[in-house]
Design a protein around this nucleic acid. Structure first.
Length: 552
RNA sequence: GGCCCCGUGGUCAAGCGGUUAAGACAUCGCCCUUUCACGGCGGAGACAUGGGUUCGAUUCCCGUCGGGGUCACCA
């Protein structure tokens, strides 16, 4: 009996690997095209760090005319979550980062290199495992979990390196006959790699991000196929990324330390190794220290946070690009309106250390992004957001014409406002422009410098009766306010007043404007008063001024 | 604990043996301005630490300290 017999005994039905090598031909892409992937477990949850990887992966693929595919790594049934795949797909879609091939919903997929769901690739992994057994490079292991635990305990007590290797790898030295007999007896087993490595030797690895890194060789006889017949991550990675013709593996740097194993697996299987780029995680400040953004503790760790808050997807992507390549910012400054596709991402320029997540920065980017939107874009996006997260706002926005006027205030000019960072800010931002809201809000009129009730009444009435004219353009509108200021005994110009405040003890135009602004909107800080008056219209103005006076 | 990675202002970061050590966000002040926002100008603020190597180290080497990752039939 030889290795081949053993292999046949273990996987009697597995195909020869030549079948798969033939079936999944090298991709016909242009020279230098990058084939990469996003390979999450189907938990439905997409971490900001994963999105970061996707941004990089997708960008690299796109700019080299390559492919970015989505592979679902569901080899651990314990982690399975219902509708986990669709959750991931939708999250990618939310950020315009959908994969070029792979799963497109729970059941279906596109692309020639599938199945893209690992649980459906069982026979493929087994074929390669069988191949390794037949070569004497892998073997069945009959050790029980308890034995393994006991062994680890012993190793720990003796302060020696834990693991299944060297003399500790009991089943490694079983003869083919012994193994065959155990199998025939019905003993349960798993498949392990017969590692050719030696701890004393070093291997060199060049990582696209981390640079040159030396490791001791792997000498652990790691598990390839688990008791349930499914592969471990490591084995699946080697088989899948070979067969799917991945050129670049872009993943979190928690994988860096498995590089010796992965390289060994590729070597043992006779595969060409892909290039690796290990991305540093996005961290968070946690009393003085740094830690990875945590799914449990930090709401901002989940990408759904951004969609829920209504932070525009471009802002999130820009922020991520910003962390990835620091020259992004200067590129953006030079090309304020260019498409993100025009930015060339350089993987070598990525930072080796993990960045601390900065919500303030992302919000700043969001403000800038939104400030470039037209009123219509704002309307559309805010409405879309409101439809799912804020029914009340959705109702308010039903009158598109009016909403467009509101959003149009101080927009579209050279210095657009930057006061909306996320769609969840919108209500707060515009509610006073709606009578239905304004009349229900408890308004606290703060007139600032002018406090005398009669004076306030006088200013408001004089303005409405003698000066206001809806047909005025902005310049005449403001001139009239100045005229009125003068007539009422205030300084016409703030500058003049500043030069000699004693000449105008009552104050200046600004103080009058404040009265008109506060009485009208209930707020002391608003965008341009003229535009607000234009949008509100005379009738509403009259009504609001009356209530303001009554409230004195 | 073993192995591996990292360490420039509060944060993200340029820098590649000789620099007044960029820039962005945040912060402070001034200007612009009818308020706010925007914008403009300016300020404060950094090479973790100790040894080498060198004419010269933020930059190269070693140690220390600090942070992170990894050591599963999880990915």
């Amino acid at each position: 009996m030889d290795y081949q017999d053993l292999a046949n005994l273990v996987f009697p039905n597995a195909k020869d690997i030549s079948f798969y090598e033939e079936k999944y031909k090298p991709r016909n892409l242009k020279e230098g095209a990058i084939v990469t992937r996003f390979a999450p477990s189907p938990t439905g949850f997409v971490h900001l760090g994963s999105l970061y990887q996707v941004v990089i992966a997708k960008k690299l693929a796109k700019q080299t005319e390559g492919v970015m595919f989505l592979r679902i790594e569901d080899t651990d049934q314990k982690r399975e979550v219902e509708n986990g795949v669709i959750g991931i797909i939708n999250s990618l879609k939310d950020f315009d980062l959908s994969a070029d091939e792979g799963m497109i919903d729970e059941e279906n997929e596109i692309g020639e290199y599938g199945p893209y769901k690992q649980s459906l690739r069982k026979d493929i992994y087994q074929a390669y495992a069988k191949y390794l057994i037949s070569q004497g490079k892998a073997y069945p292991c009959f050790c029980k979990t308890e034995e393994l635990d006991e062994m680890r305990q012993k190793q720990e007590n003796a302060k020696i390196r834990p693991g299944y290797y060297g003399v500790w790898a009991k089943c490694r030295n079983l003869t083919v006959e012994e193994a065959a007999e155990k199998i025939k007896k019905g003993e349960s087993y798993i498949i392990r790699l017969k590692s050719p490595g030696n701890e004393e030797r070093k291997i060199k690895h060049h990582d696209l991000i981390k640079g040159n890194v030396d490791f001791p060789e792997n000498d652990q006889d790691v598990v390839l196929i688990k008791g349930d017949g499914l592969p471990t991550y490591h084995f699946a990675h080697a088989v899948d990324d070979h067969l799917m013709r991945t050129t670049h593996v872009i993943r979190g740097d928690e994988w860096l330390s498995s590089i010796p194993l992965h390289l060994q697996l590729f070597q043992v299987l006779g595969f060409k190794t892909p290039k690796y780029a290990h991305i540093s995680p996005i961290m968070k400040e946690d009393n003085g220290g740094k830690r990875k953004l945590s799914k449990r503790k930090d709401p901002e760790a989940s990408v759904s946070f951004y969609t829920e808050q209504g932070i525009p997807k471009e802002a999130v992507v820009e922020y991520l690009l910003n962390i990835a390549n620091s020259n992004f910012e200067s590129w953006r400054k030079a090309n304020p309106n260019a498409s993100l596709d025009d930015f060339e991402l350089k993987i070598e320029k990525m930072s080796v250390s993990g960045a601390l997540f900065d919500i303030v920065k992302i919000l700043d980017i969001a403000k800038t992004v939104i400030s470039k939107y037209s009123a219509e874009q704002i309307y559309n996006e805010a409405l879309e957001w409101a439809k799912v997260y804020d029914k009340h706002l959705e109702e308010l926005l039903q009158n598109k014409n009016y909403a467009m006027q509101v959003f149009g205030i101080e927009r579209g000019n050279a210095k657009p406002r930057k006061d909306i960072a996320k769609w969840s800010d919108v209500y707060q931002n515009i509610s006073y422009m709606y009578d239905s809201e304004f009349s229900n809000q408890k308004v606290n009129y703060e007139y600032q410098k002018i406090t005398d009730k009669e004076e306030i009444t006088k200013i408001v009435n004089t303005y409405m009766n003698e000066y206001y004219d809806a047909k005025d353009d902005k310049q005449t509108w403001f001139n009239k306010i100045k005229d009125m200021a003068e007539k009422l005994g205030y300084a016409r110009e703030v500058k003049e007043w500043k030069k000699s405040p004693e000449t105008w003890p009552k104050g200046h135009v600004g103080d009058i404007s404040t009265v008109l602004r506060v009485a009208l909107t209930g707020r002391s800080n608003t965008p341009d008063l003229y535009e607000i008056m234009q949008v509100l219209g005379k009738e509403t103005m009259q009504k609001r001024y009356e209530t303001a006076i009554q409230a004195l």
